[in-house]
Each structure stands twice: as C-alpha cells, then as structure tokens.
Design a protein around this nucleic acid. Sequence first.
DNA 1: ATATTTAATCGTAATATTGCAATAATACAA
DNA 2: TTGTATTATTGCAATATTACGATTAAATAT
Lengths: 109, 109
Amino acid sequence: MGATKSDLFTRQQNEIAAMAKALAHPARIAILQYLVKKNACVCGDLVDELGLAQATTSQHLKELKTAGVIQGTIEGASVCYCINPKVWKQYKELFNSFFKDVDLQQTCC
Amino acid sequence: MGATKSDLFTRQQNEIAAMAKALAHPARIAILQYLVKKNACVCGDLVDELGLAQATTSQHLKELKTAGVIQGTIEGASVCYCINPKVWKQYKELFNSFFKDVDLQQTCC
DNA sequence: ATATTTAATCGTAATATTGCAATAATACAA
DNA sequence: TTGTATTATTGCAATATTACGATTAAATAT
C-alpha cells in the first residue's frame, strides 16, 4: 500500500491532481512566480532566489519540467528557464473549469 | 531533513502551495467534483462513490475539511458534506490571480 | 438491552517527497 | 590541458502521504 490508486479515477481527475501536485510546494510556486514576473528566459539566478541548496532547487526545477509547465534550454554553461505558455494556458483553463461557478448559496450544513 | 522549509517563502506562496496540496490527489478531486455535481449536502454515499476503503475515504475527507474547502455536519447517524462556498471562492480567486495572463508569446527557449 | 449502521480514529506497512552533501557532467576560459 | 562555473545526478536520511484492517464511538433500529 501507500501508492495512489490512479486506476480508480478518471483520466481527467488524475490529470488535475497531477497539475495540483506540481504546484503543491512553495518553492515551486516561488519559481513560477519569479519566471512570470521576469516574463523571459531566466538563466542561473534561481538558486540564489530560493535559498535552498543547489541540488534541491534542481530537483524542483526537474519536477516542473516533467509536469511540462516550464522548459529549459542549455545556454552555454548555464540553463535558461521559462514558462511554457502552452501548458500554462492549459493549467489555467483546467483549473478555471474545475472551479467554474457553483451555486454559491449554502444549501445545507 | 525531509520537511518543507516554509519559512523560506512568503505567506502567499505557502498558502497557494497548501491549496494545491489539498487538490493533489485524484480521490479528493473526485470528492469535490461529486459534491459540486450534486450541489447539495451529500450524506454517506461517498465511500461507495470512490472505491477506496472507508478509512481511506474518511482520511481524504478530513484533509479537505482541514483545508476548509468542504464542511460536514452530523445528521443523525451519518454525516453530510458539502462545498464551503466561501473557501471555494477563495480558491477560485487565488488560482485565477496566480494564472493571470502572462504574455503568451515565447520570448526565448 | 442488544444489534446494526455510519463515520472517525488508531496502528501499521508501503511508498513518495523533501533536502542536502558529494559527485558527475558539461561548457568555457586561461 | 587545467581550472572554473554551472547544472544534473546519486545516495541517503528525515519526514509525509496513502492505504487499509481493526477498533471505537455515537445514533438508530429491533
């Protein structure tokens, strides 16, 4: 036991959960916010930005890359990161549709 | 080690990450979708709905309750759950502002 | 009173995540 | 070539999450 039983759920449910998981750490939120703020390709300075060890930062970047929400290209000795606008849009839309208006009056409880 | 270093990040970053964490499991997505679909107080049938053991389902419900996004009231022998519209709205808004438009052209990478 | 139903909690095992030091791997400079 | 800078990977320890059986607690039914 201990592993998520993905087969019990729909593809969409697993997808939304996976997206949420990519966002489920403040360091990854900080990375994304920084990239959005810069709105450009950012080389290098992410480690200084976060305050976590280089290895840890690299790991978080890898997770975001695996999720597809950022992309990195090798630029000489360093690597440039930026938001993947296509996937960012997908995230935005999926969360939007997930949170689409519920009838906001309290029916009971 | 192993514990998230929340003190390195802003309150807002920790908050968004915590919300994302609450959504970061397909069972919890399924629960929320079910409650939204019914748009009412749902008593009991959540265990049958998910296919997970009663203890596991109860644990996921607890996490959603702790996050504040659902609420439960005792109704005789069973418990009725529904979306907390106030917190739902907060989630919606926070994610919305997080995903607010980035200049969607590819600057580099 | 006793049994049944419903949901929470406890205990425990399996697995995943977080964090970092140490070590690679790669590009470039001297 | 040798050294330096930058990022990835490996290995490991600490902690968190997921899952479930067993038990408990509380309300209701018989």
